[in-house]
Amino acid sequence: MIQAIAFYLFATLTIFSGAVTILARNPVHSVLWLILAFFNAAGLMILIGAEFIAMLLVIVYVGAVAVLFLFVVMMLDIDFAQLRAGFIKNFPLGFALAFVLLAELVMGVGAYKAGGLALGTPDAATAPVAGLSNTAAIGALLYSRYLFLFETAGIILLVAMIGAIVLTHRQRGDVRGQKPSSQISRRPEEATINLQPEVGKGVTL
């Protein structure tokens, strides 16, 4: 009962916020609605028992990817008048793309009516271990059988990190950073001097 109510709540909100994401005129508002859609999708994931995916959706998509989207949207210098000016010119291409997407949707609904997918039966090595939670079952497979893919993901992350640093990091020459060791080891005697200058004469420093 509660499960059904929660499902309809999350599903309705997901579809609604997804629609507003497309329809909102302000791109920043679009991203905020997208974040709401992510949250509700996480709720749906919990309802079908995929706890880890749900938490991942919140941590990675809401916490990181959506923030990055906001960054990109705010950084882009969009001139809306110029964008709208190209609308007529690019209309055939846009229409073709929309048509392809619509055809995919229709085919998707058709495939849904044709019945469930006949997935291969899991062999002994990939069958979920009984009595394990969803997260532990993922871990048991990811860190033994799919170890190579996991390490490849690590390498990809490393490449992404180095690439981002190489592309965007600029060293400014005129910056004086902190040097904690020399700053702490400085004594008052070497930093200050006492002088008694005579009247009418300056001080050389």
Binding site: F52, I59, L132, A136, I138, G139, L157, A160
Partner: peptide, 16 residues
Amino acid sequence: IIFDLEAAFLFPWAVS
């Protein structure tokens, strides 16, 4: 994001 993803991989590892 990169370190966030790295941390996300730690959770299933820890429980399995």
